[in-house]
Design a protein around this nucleic acid. Structure first.
Length: 348
DNA sequence: AAGACGGGGCA
DNA sequence: TGCCCAGTCTT
């Protein structure tokens, strides 16, 4: 394979077929940074509305560095991997203190910022700063496995390292940003991850060994999935005088610093539920079961039963709980999707 | 090297 | 239902 032909075939296709995306119209370092973080393990269609809202609310590094955490998490609500948002603010503060609020253009310095790994550093350096460096993501690993008819496990550390080196040689010197984005668009629209790739439309099929061998459905090869553990929970929607009880989750771990409905491990009987509420300082006026719901995370499942509890006003002494209106829940409090079914009970 | 870390779209 | 997505960080 000749690098120059591969590059020109890919770039020519990209210049005609590039997807129109909000972060591409003004690829400032800040816009590219935010988009790349949002796009980690997250589809383009999902990211677009989040990106537009985020940039409107927090247009630059300075604004991001000063944003209140609850507002930041509200902007991220439903996007997942919430540490990405917290790392974004940490990095913004570092940039304000050490670099006049500017993103660095060197890979080495980008990698020092929290939330930026090898892929994101390469993407930012190439797209925002025109550096001729690779940006190896899942698309690139899949495309290159097919191009080279490589049957190794694509997620294998050694393979990733190898691909990093291959792409460092292959990336266009003149248009590295377009080259890397072309690989993403090709992976998203032609060289598909599931289902048959659209090889007849592929601009680089003449370079593709898997296509030549008729092996595109067997490559890439990936190792098995791991079993997900299941956790049972009992969730309480507690209502008192038009307000609902929320609790802030701890920093670190799952869903850090987000808000949740009070909940207990395992399925509780009504008796156990009353004891649990009592220990929290809640006196039950009325309590009715809520339909069971299930939520699947990447590494575990929550199976949830619930109760809708009506409490009396005098019982709202205990804190650790915040009492908020349905409107506040909607506009201010960041509650993860896992509680979606229970949020329905808080509509005005 | 493996596990933690969200959520949704699609076959 | 299972896989995978413009991955990174921790153990």
């Amino acid at each position: 394979m000749r690098s120059s032909q591969f590059q020109s075939d890919l770039l020519q296709w990209f210049h005609k077929n590039a997807r129109v995306l909000p972060w591409r119209s003004h690829p400032t370092p800040y816009n590219v940074w935010i988009s790349e973080i949002m796009l980690q393990q997250t589809r383009v269609d999902t990211v677009v509305p989040y990106f537009v809202r985020f940039i409107t609310e927090l247009p630059d590094v300075s604004a991001l560095s000063q944003v209140e955490e609850d507002k930041l998490l509200k902007l991220w609500q439903g996007l997942g991997y919430y540490n990405r948002a917290l790392n974004l603010k940490k990095a913004a503060k570092i940039l304000m203190e050490t670099n006049q609020g500017q993103l660095p253009s060197e890979i080495k310095h980008l990698l020092e910022l929290p939330g930026i790994g090898p892929y994101s550093a390469g993407a930012i350096a190439s797209i925002a700063f025109g550096k001729a460096v690779p940006a190896v993501d899942g698309n690139v690993l899949r495309i290159m496995a097919r191009i080279l008819a490589n049957r190794e496990d694509i997620n294998n550390t050694k393979n990733k390292k190898h691909m990093q080196e291959v792409m460092a040689q292959l990336v266009s010197e003149k248009e590295p940003g377009s080259f890397n984005q072309a690989m993403m668009d090709l992976g998203a629209t032609i060289c598909l991850p599931n289902g048959e790739p659209k090889c007849s439309e592929c601009p680089i099929r003449r370079h593709c060994q898997a296509n030549k061998l008729g092996a595109t459905s067997e490559i890439p090869v990936k190792i098995q999935k791991k079993v997900r553990s299941v956790e049972k929970k009992t969730v309480f929607v507690i209502s008192s005088e038009g307000q609902f009880a929320l609790k802030k989750r701890k920093p670190g771990g799952l869903l850090p610093n987000l808000w949740e409905f009070p909940n207990a491990e395992d399925y509780l009987t009504e008796k156990q539920a009353r004891d649990f509420l009592s220990a929290m300082g809640i006196r039950v006026h009325d309590m009715v079961p809520i339909k069971q719901s299930k939520h699947v995370f990447s590494h575990l499942e929550w199976h949830m039963k619930g109760f809708f509890v009506t409490a009396t006003a005098d019982d709202r002494v205990q804190s650790e709980l915040s009492w908020v209106t349905g409107t506040d829940i909607q506009h201010q409090y960041s509650i993860p999707t896992v509680f979606k079914a229970f949020m329905e009970y808080c509509k005005q």
